[in-house]
Design a protein around this nucleic acid. Structure first.
Lengths: 175, 175
DNA sequence: ACCTGTTGCTTGCAAATCGCAAGTTTGATT
DNA sequence: AATCAAACTTGCGATTTGCAAGCAACAGGT
């Protein structure tokens, strides 16, 4: 092991944190991953209209980078030849704990649109939540786990969590 | 609760993930936080020479942003009036789970300079590790928890973890 | 076959940000 | 006083971003 450096060309350091940031350390990448992971989004158009207002050139660039890093994979839509389906790979769904901790940190320390009860549930049941997110990914369940938080009316916290936490009786409306 | 929007001016969305990225969603902020959290760095010079090669203007800017977000706080050095001591606030040390998950993800999926045994230990003992990091912060213990991973020789995994995991018998050499 | 709308991009360009080198300022050392 | 060091700031060219527009491939209706 003496001669061989662990460092790839162009890499700033071998620190794992640094490499993570090299992959998705920007304003948009993790938002796209969040959309795929918890909202069930799969197409360019869905990401574009996701609410944060990403420009289409940036979106295309980020999807390409994530694909190059094998965090997402693409396939053509069987039903509609115009569409491209973007999916998280296993490497991508493995970012669920990162997203989860970002979610919990901001809920605790910043003023957000996320209802407290839901965040408290998630914070107290990390493992259950992660397993549910992972299950949906494995089974290709398109049902969003968390709906986008409304910016104005944060009152109705009950209908944020998609599906049923314990048993999942049936699916809700799609879209 | 109807009238008041949760959204601050200039904010892209009320989603906690988005707000987190607004605070530290760039190439450098989390590296600085990592340096403070696990390496015990506290001064401008230490961050600058941290190994990733950050430019001084960017470093100054990021430290200011993090201070404005109350993730770090500053105080003058008692012993040397030129120096400024940067410390994580409670809000800042609360980012430990985020850093930890970034570390574990890249260790699992990318080629890094981090020794496998250490990462396996950390992955299997998240809670213990987090508590130790937090303890060091609370007690102002300047002993680094993780030393910078050497890019070339990754052989000596035994001396990466600073101090003793169970009881901490005594401190090792500093830097 | 033709027309219209949709989807997933690409292109052009101005504005913001970054990265590097070189100062400047304040305080410690000699 | 002279020198050095730490923490920034400033200038400037290069890169990246944001916004608008354009475009090719496809779908659906007539």
């Amino acid at each position: 092991m003496a001669g061989k450096s662990n460092q790839e060309p162009g890499r700033r350091s071998g620190c794992p944190v640094s490499i993570s940031l090299e992959r998705f350390g920007d304003r948009w990448s993790l938002l796209i991953i969040r959309d795929m992971m918890v909202r069930g989004y799969r197409t360019f158009k869905q990401f574009k209209e996701s609410g944060e207002g990403i420009a289409t050139n940036i979106l295309a660039d980020r999807l390409n980078r994530l694909r190059a890093a094998r965090i997402v994979a693409t396939e053509p839509d069987e039903a509609d030849g115009r569409k491209v389906i973007y999916r998280l790979t296993e490497k991508g769904i493995d970012l669920a704990p990162v997203i989860l901790e970002l979610l919990l940190w901001a809920s605790k320390w910043e003023q957000t649109a996320a209802p407290c009860e839901v965040m408290q549930y998630i914070g107290a049941n990390r493992q259950v939540v992660l397993e549910e997110v992972c299950r949906r990914w494995r089974e290709g369940d398109p049902e969003p786990f968390l709906r986008p938080f409304s910016a104005s009316g944060a009152g109705s916290g009950a209908k944020i969590l998609g599906g049923n936490k314990k048993k999942r009786t049936k699916k809700g409306a799609n879209v």
